[in-house]
Each structure stands twice: as structure tokens, then as C-alpha cells.
Amino acid sequence: MKKVALLTAAIIICAVPFYGQHFITKNGHISFYSDGPLEKIEAHNKQVNSALNIETGDMVFKVLMKSFVFEKALMQEHFNENYVESDKFPNATFKGKVVNMSDITLTKDGTYEADVEGELTIHGISNKIEDKGTFIVSKEGIHGNSKFNILLADYDISIPGAVTGKIAEEIEITVDVKLKKFSK
């Protein structure tokens, strides 16, 4: 009976990708920026969930779209109602992997380049992305940074006809997370 219980526990552990030593934050910062002929658009979300399994390199981000704050209230309304339809698609997610996790020495302070690939889902549309990031390892944890561009059309986010050509079709996304060791 004891063996069955142990075997069951082992199967459950293997099935859960985030079992094992992982680092988390719920206060990650993601911002985006676009510079179109009509106007510059910038928004910040400082309540991003992120987790990194340092044994497997699995990495997850969960971003609540309504938590993006814009300088102008009108922009924020348009973003939520017309562009990303945040009532229908409240969260954006990234599920992927740091493929060179074995090159990152978490026991030694330093700056490491991280090769990240995975699936980014925004507005209900998923696309594979590959990009590079930086991990700064210190006693406080892992400080991850990355910057990459996405095309709005890849996520079925359409620009209203009246402002087509005046708002950038590509946006730059900046990720800044301070991950800390998770212990229950």
C-alpha cells in the first residue's frame, strides 16, 4: 500500500511541470510601447505573475490585460474595449522554456544570457516566439529582463479604419521580473 502511494506521488510529481525548485513573482513589470505617426502609446502593468522552474527551465507568465495603465484614460478604454477585448480575453499568457538553463549558474552571482522560447497567447491567439533575455543572479534572486517586438496582426488585433496607418502595427514589449525563491 505504501509503495502504491509512493508510486502515485511520483507520477503526480512528474506530471506537474512546476514541481521542483522554482522562483516566482507576482509583481513583475511588463510594459509596451509603440510609436506611430498619430501618437505614441505606452502602458505599464506592474502586477504580472511569473514563475521559473530552475530544474527544467519551464517558465510561465500570466498578465491581466485590465491591469495595464495608460497615461490617458481614453487610450486605456480603447485598448480594453476595441483592441484586446479584455472582457472576452482577460489574460495574456506565455508558457515556455529557458532552453539554455544548464548554462546559467544559479549558485554564482553574475549576468547570464537566457534563450527563451515558447507560446505567447494574446487576444485568444497563440504564436510561437523565440527571444533572448538576461538573467542577473544575486543573493536576492533572479532578475530577468527581455525586450521583443510583436505584430498586432499576428494576434488578430485590428486597428480601426479611421486610424489605420496612424497607429504603429508593431509594438515593443519590455519584461522586467524580480523572481524570488518560492518556499511554502
Binding site: 507576482k26 502586477q47 505573475n49 500570466k62 498578465v63 491581466l64 485590465k66 491591469s67 479584455s86 482577460p90 489574460n91
Partner: peptide, 9 residues
């Protein structure tokens, strides 16, 4: 601003 599948914000 909603629920991010772990917390209400």
C-alpha cells in the same frame, strides 16, 4: 481589474 487565474486584483 479581474482574476488572473490565481488572484483577484
Amino acid at each position: 481589474s479581474g482574476y488572473n487565474e490565481t488572484d483577484v486584483i
